[in-house]
Amino acid sequence: MAVKVRIPTPLQKLTDGKDEVEGEPGTIISLINFLNSKYPGMGERITEGGKVRKFVNIYINDEDIRFLKNEETEVKDGDEVSIVPAIAGG
């Protein structure tokens, strides 16, 4: 069993239109690095200087990683990770 990663529509160009891809267990940051190796460009869209960007929210199952251990939050086999760009403006 792997980690299920839900890809938001703005990033599906990088995954050939797939809204769901598989990742490896580890931490959130290692998962993002893994995704970036498979889908180049993904990393910089989600993170900046090793931190998740302000306007990107990441959930493990239904929990916001900001309420867990942020980038160091552990991701296990069977977890579902959702990447959700914020909806904001002025």
Partner: peptide, 9 residues
């Protein structure tokens, strides 16, 4: 504006 992230999710 910024949508409340949990509600948006």
């Amino acid at each position: 504006y910024m949508m409340e992230p949990g509600e948006q999710f």
